[in-house]
C-alpha cells in the first residue's frame, strides 16, 4: 500500500524566554523526534495525556506551526520546504477538525458562509456550483440544507461538530486530522459523530489521524495506534496487538486506568505515581522512568528507541526487545 503521509523524525521545540532581553533559557520539547506513516484509507490514532505533544504533532503536519526539524512527506512530496502558495494548494487536501465545536466556528458567519469560505479560499467553485456543493456537503454530514442561513449558536453541540466536519470536507481533502473530535460531546451524540466519520471515510476514501485520550474510542476507530509520552512515541502497533498485548509499562497503565462499564470486572488498575513531568526539563534517559514500576539504572541514562517487537508492533523500552 502506498503511504499517503510519511513523517520522519519530527521535532518541535518552543523556546522559553525570560527577562528584559527575552533571552532563551530553555526549550519546551513538545515533539521530540516522532516518526510514523499513514497509508491511504487508514486511520491512525494518537493517544496520550495532556502535554504529551499529540496536538502539536498534528499542527506541525499541517504546518500550522513550523516544525523545528524533520521531514513530512505528503503524497511523496516533502511539504516542509514548500513556500506558502504551494503549501496552500497542499493544505486543501489536508484538513482539520477541532475539539471545541463552538470555539472553532465564527459566530458571525452563517453555516453556508463557514462552509463556502474554504471553497472560496481555494477557488474551487463559484456561483450556483458553489451553492450546490455546500448543499451536497451539508447533506453528507446529515445537516438540513434548509438551515444554510443559520448561525452556529442556533445549533446544538453535535450539530456544530457536524458543521466543523462539513467545513473540513468542503475542499475535497484526502487526509483529515481530528483533534479530540468527540471528547466534548455527550455519549449519545458521540456515537452519532463517530458513525458519521466512519461513513464519510468509506464514502470519500478519506484517511484519518484521530487524536484522543479516550482509549475505547480510539480502539473503535483506529487501525493503528501511536502512544505518546512527553513528546515521544513510546509504543506503536495495530489496534489488536496494542490492546491485546500492550508492551510498554505506560500503555499498560493507560489501558488499565480505563473504567470498564461491566461492574463484575474487578479493576486491576495500575496506579501510577505522580504527574507527567514538565516538558521544559524532561527527565533524562527514558522520559517515563520517574513513574515506571520496572525502572532500572539504565533507564535513567539511555534513551530507548522505538524498535520492532514482532510484526507491526514497535515499542521504546529497554526491557521489551527480544
Amino acid at each position: 500500500m502506498e503511504n499517503l503521509l510519511q513523517v520522519n523524525n519530527l521535532k518541535k521545540y518552543f523556546p522559553v524566554k525570560r527577562g528584559v532581553f527575552k533571552r532563551t533559557f530553555g526549550h519546551v520539547y513538545a515533539v521530540d523526534g516522532v516518526s510514523f506513516h499513514l497509508a491511504k484509507g487508514e486511520t491512525l490514532g494518537i493517544v496520550g495525556e495532556s502535554g504529551c505533544g499529540k496536538s502539536t504533532t498534528a499542527r506541525a503536519i499541517l504546518r500550522l506551526t513550523e516544525p523545528t526539524k524533520g521531514e513530512i512527506y505528503f503524497q511523496g512530496q516533502n511539504i516542509c520546504k514548500l513556500d506558502s502558495s504551494r503549501m496552500k494548494s497542499i493544505r486543501k487536501k489536508m484538513q482539520m477538525i477541532f475539539q471545541d465545536p463552538y470555539g472553532s466556528l465564527n459566530p458571525r458567519m452563517t453555516v453556508g458562509n463557514i462552509i463556502g469560505d474554504s471553497i472560496d479560499i481555494h477557488k474551487l467553485y463559484r456561483g450556483n456550483r458553489k451553492k450546490e456543493r455546500i448543499v451536497y456537503i451539508m447533506e453528507s454530514v446529515e445537516l438540513n440544507p434548509d438551515q444554510i442561513g443559520r448561525y452556529p449558536h442556533q445549533f446544538s453541540g453535535g450539530q456544530r461538530q457536524r458543521i466543523g466536519i462539513a467545513r473540513a470536507l468542503a475542499t475535497e481533502p484526502e487526509l483529515i486530522i481530528g483533534d479530540e473530535p468527540v471528547s466534548a460531546l455527550d455519549v449519545s451524540i458521540q456515537a452519532q459523530i463517530i458513525n458519521l466519520l466512519e461513513n464519510l471515510q468509506t464514502r470519500f476514501g478519506l484517511s484519518y489521524i484521530i487524536i484522543a485520550h479516550d482509549m475505547a474510542v480510539i480502539e473503535h476507530m483506529c487501525d493503528r495506534i501511536a502512544v505518546m509520552y512527553l513528546g515521544r512515541i513510546v509504543e506503536m502497533a495495530d489496534f489488536k496487538s496494542l490492546y491485546g498485548n500492550p508492551l510498554h509499562p505506560y500503555t499498560q497503565a493507560l489501558l488499565s486506568a480505563v473504567p470498564v462499564i461491566d461492574p463484575d470486572t474487578e479493576g486491576k488498575t495500575i496506579i501510577l505515581k505522580g504527574d507527567v513531568p514538565s516538558p521544559i526539563n524532561p527527565p533524562p534517559g527514558c522520559h517515563f522512568h520517574t513513574r515506571c514500576i520496572h525502572k532500572k539504572e539504565e533507564c535513567e541514562q539511555k534513551v530507548p528507541h522505538l524498535k520492532p517487537a514482532g510484526g507491526d508492533h514497535f515499542v521504546a523500552c529497554h526491557f521489551k526487545h527480544k
Binding site: V187, A191, E219, V258
Partner: peptide, 28 residues
C-alpha cells in the same frame, strides 16, 4: 439501554469485528 449500547467498549472490536455504534437519534 441506548446509553450503554452507544458507548464504544474496549475489546469488542478485537472480538467481534467493527460494527457501527448504536445511536440514540435526535438531541436532548
Amino acid at each position: 439501554i441506548g446509553l450503554i449500547k452507544s458507548l464504544p467498549r474496549m475489546g469488542l472490536r478485537s472480538q467481534y469485528g467493527k460494527k457501527p455504534l448504536h445511536e440514540i437519534p435526535g438531541i436532548v
